[in-house]
Simulated assay, not measured.
Amino acid sequence: MMDFHCHLDLYPRAMEVYREAARRNKFTWLVTTSPKAFAATSRALEPLPSVLITPGLHPEIAHERAAELDLLLEQIADVKAVGEVGLDGSPRFKAHYEVQRKIFGAVVARCAEVGGRTLSVHSRRAVRDVLADFERHPNFGTAVMHWFSGSRSELKDAAAHGCWFSIGPAMFESANGRALAEAMPHDRVVPESDGPFAKVGGKSVLPWNASQVAEGLAPLWATTPDEAAEILARNGQALLYLMGQR
């Protein structure tokens, strides 16, 4: 199984979860929330071939970590992927939206400058602005829209821009999440956990729980869980190839 968006470093007993994810999963993408967190996590965790650790600057803390932007732009030159980055236009974070825009625009521009990177992208209530940055820098690489929550028309536009979509078990908890998952291009969907933040039944989703995505997708895609799992596995391998991981 694979997990294309997980905050492995933020679980309680993170080292144990990290080792178990490496044992159970063929691939786990550990996204960090800030450049300094990436540096610290990279030092603290033993490098393992099945775990990719990437630098990011989460939009929810962009205003607190804006001074780390230059460090992130330096780090981007030495990695194959970047995340978590993006924009959040929800009421709680709207006051800092212009700071987010500055940071995300600089990240996308830097990715284009260094030949393209794969990005794990947060786009809550900000899909149009995210896509606008992609249009300004068409050689930025590949976007994986994490836990996409936009409208159906925004989903269609994101797909037209070549975006991929990572979805986790928690997405199936809402009718809107199920409707979006059903409408996503079947050949560009990969599993994620978004643990420990994403929860199902009050418990944090674990990296190896991403396998439950096939069970959630099966009735929406009119297929069996095994067939859905095969589609996700093919998609995951294709995305890893784009990322230069395989």
Rank of each mutant, 00 (worst) to 15 (best):
S153N: 06
V190F: 09
A158D: 08
V114A: 03
L71T: 11
S90E: 13
A22R: 08
E182V: 01
G56K: 04
S34P: 00
L71Y: 00
P225G: 13
S211P: 00
R13S: 14
R246K: 15
L119E: 10
D226F: 11
P47F: 15
M184Q: 08
A40L: 11
I61H: 07
N139L: 09
F27G: 04
Q237A: 15
D157K: 15
P185I: 12
P59F: 13
Q212D: 13
V127S: 12
L131H: 03
V51H: 02
P219K: 11
A175P: 00
A67V: 03
A132L: 13
S166I: 10
V121G: 00
G162L: 11
K80H: 09
A170S: 14
S123R: 04
A160H: 04
V200L: 08
L119H: 03
K36W: 09
E135M: 08
P169R: 07
A229H: 05
M243H: 11
N139D: 15
P138R: 08
L180T: 06
P55Q: 11
L10D: 06
T33Y: 03
W147R: 02
E230A: 15
A228C: 06
T28V: 15
A37T: 09
T223D: 07
I103Q: 02
F148E: 05
N235T: 10
M145D: 06
S90P: 01
R124I: 04
D133T: 10
D187Y: 01
P185E: 02
K26V: 09
F27W: 10
M1A: 13
A210Q: 00
G202T: 12
L72W: 02
T33C: 09
A62F: 01
M1D: 01
V213I: 07
M2R: 05
H146K: 03
H5M: 08
G115S: 05
F134A: 09
E20Q: 14
T54G: 04
I61E: 07
C111T: 12
M1R: 02
K102Y: 13
G89K: 08
P138Y: 12
V31H: 03
A112R: 01
R136T: 08
F93A: 03
A222I: 06
A22L: 02
S149E: 10
V85W: 08
A112S: 14
S204T: 11
W29I: 06
A37M: 14
S193F: 03
L240P: 01
D78M: 10
A22W: 02
G86Q: 03
M243S: 13
S42Y: 05
H186F: 04
I76R: 08
I231P: 00
